[in-house]
């Protein structure tokens, strides 16, 4: 990112590269959410495909958007593929956050694309994909990532995509091929996974139970109940290629700062 010289880092930015720190940072893709990067020992290993798991309303979309906006701030181009929410709704929600910078979207540093439009233009059946459909879609996702030279990619949600694939084998194949070709481009991917609210002790991070085994990492957005109040939590379940904290953090979503993390107080759990 320094080579092209086009990147201007403003003074307030936290992302100024420290001298001597660059060796450690090289292989990492910083989320730009300080606490999360600290938990990840610098960031997500570049090229990883990470499953961001949570029930509806747990902050997955916000976190992913912040990841892309922060990436743009560091000069890394990103793309957000939405399947569940139409574009206007998505941008309307995200505009309320202090971290959102319209400029990045206008300048093409952050691209938000409705995958349903793409698949419709490809003539794919909107409800079910057969093997040919899936491979056509995969090709197009790769081509788009390639064309835009993105370093960060989000699919929101992989659950909605898997729903259209008709067998476990197809899901496995799709995620595996997507992950490996994006990794080849040095692109770090976050796939959101929608799960129904879990019962205590239930350990399943994806609806189809397959996604979680193929992903390089799992970040779990859950909650704890404290005297009837729900406290949002974030936990890194696995992350290939880096040491990471396994403790639960309390997660705050503020309109000013977006996602904020702080260690979860444990006595109350």
């Amino acid at each position: 990112m320094e080579e092209d010289g086009a990147l201007i880092i403003n003074e307030k930015s936290n992302y100024k590269k420290m001298e001597g720190d660059s060796m450690k940072e090289n292989g990492k893709c910083k989320t730009g959410i300080d606490e999360l990067d600290r938990k990840l020992d610098g960031g997500i290993p570049k090229g990883n495909a990470v499953l961001m798991v949570g029930s509806s309303g747990s902050g997955k979309t916000t976190l992913c958007m912040q990841y892309l906006i922060n990436g743009a701030e560091m000069g890394e181009r990103g793309v957000f593929f939405t399947i569940t929410e139409p574009l206007f709704k998505l941008t309307k929600n995200i505009e309320n956050f202090g971290f959102y910078k319209k400029k990045y979207v206008e300048d093409g540093l952050v691209n938000i694309i409705d995958l349903r439009i793409i698949s419709e233009r490809l003539g794919l059946n909107s409800e079910k994909y057969n093997v040919e459909d899936a491979s056509a879609l995969l090709e197009v996702l790769k081509d788009i990532a390639d064309e835009l030279e993105v370093k960060r990619l989000v699919i929101d949600s992989i659950t909605a995509l898997c729903y259209r694939l008709q067998s476990d084998e197809m899901i496995r194949d799709f995620i595996f091929k997507l992950g490996s070709s994006l990794a080849g481009m040095g692109c770090t991917t976050i796939l959101t996974s929608e799960i129904p609210p879990t019962k205590p002790g239930e350990l399943k991070y994806s609806k189809y139970g397959i996604e979680e085994f193929i992903a390089d990492g799992i970040i779990f957005l859950g909650d704890v109940n404290r005297r009837g109040d729900i406290i949002r939590t974030l936990q890194i379940i696995k992350m290939r290629g880096t040491s990471h904290s396994r403790t639960k953090s309390a997660m705050n979503i503020s309109s000013k700062n977006g996602i904020e993390l702080t260690p979860l107080l444990k006595s109350g759990e």
Binding site: N111, I117, I118, A136, I144
Partner: peptide, 18 residues
């Protein structure tokens, strides 16, 4: 699908319209 202009068109359509 493979043609570059088609991909750009797709990106444009996918990111501009509902």
């Amino acid at each position: 699908q493979k043609s570059k202009s088609k991909i750009l068109e797709l990106i444009k359509e996918g990111s501009s319209s509902i």
